[in-house]
Amino acid sequence: MTNLVVRNSVRFLFLVLFQVLILNHINLGGYTNPYLYIYFILLLPFATPRWMLLILAFILGLSIDFFTNTLGLNAAATVLIAFCRPYVIRAISHEPEEELGIQPSLRIQGFKWFFFYSAILVLIHHVALFYLEIFRLTEFFQTLLRVVVSSVFTLALIFLSELLFYSRRKARR
């Protein structure tokens, strides 16, 4: 239990710093950039109380916002995916939540499950983030392109991190 708390806190700090210091400066193709920080929300244990999901998402979003002077923007999008997460998990799993394991993982739930899980949440987050930032309909298709390209990059980074950091867990199971 304490192990889980420590590991998630470290992941929180690492992802915020990584997002702010490195990913925010990446400028692919002129106007996209990946938002890996929501990986923290994706990886929270299944047993996390729902209110805690929302509160953590709110704090996470605000911490990113402080660095980009967009107070509330990332917070709104991140709270939205924290709200959707339980419903997405229920919709794509065949077995009850208690039998899914400790936390979402590519190795344990398999490629298909993890792909749909992360793709749906990343897409919701990016749609909310980009359209809220623009807040007008005149640039609809240009923004849609940004959403799609950025989602692909974010997903690629999520899968890369899964492959890099979570190879040990398979042996434990």
Binding site: F58, G61, T70, L71, G72, A75, V79, F83
Partner: peptide
């Protein structure tokens, strides 16, 4: 229904922050 109410509360707070700043 506390989950939905908490969600709405946090969303509204975020949006107020966003549009005010």
């Amino acid at each position: 229904n506390y989950f939905i109410f908490l969600f709405l509360l946090l969303e509204v707070v975020s949006l107020i922050f966003f549009f005010r700043t």
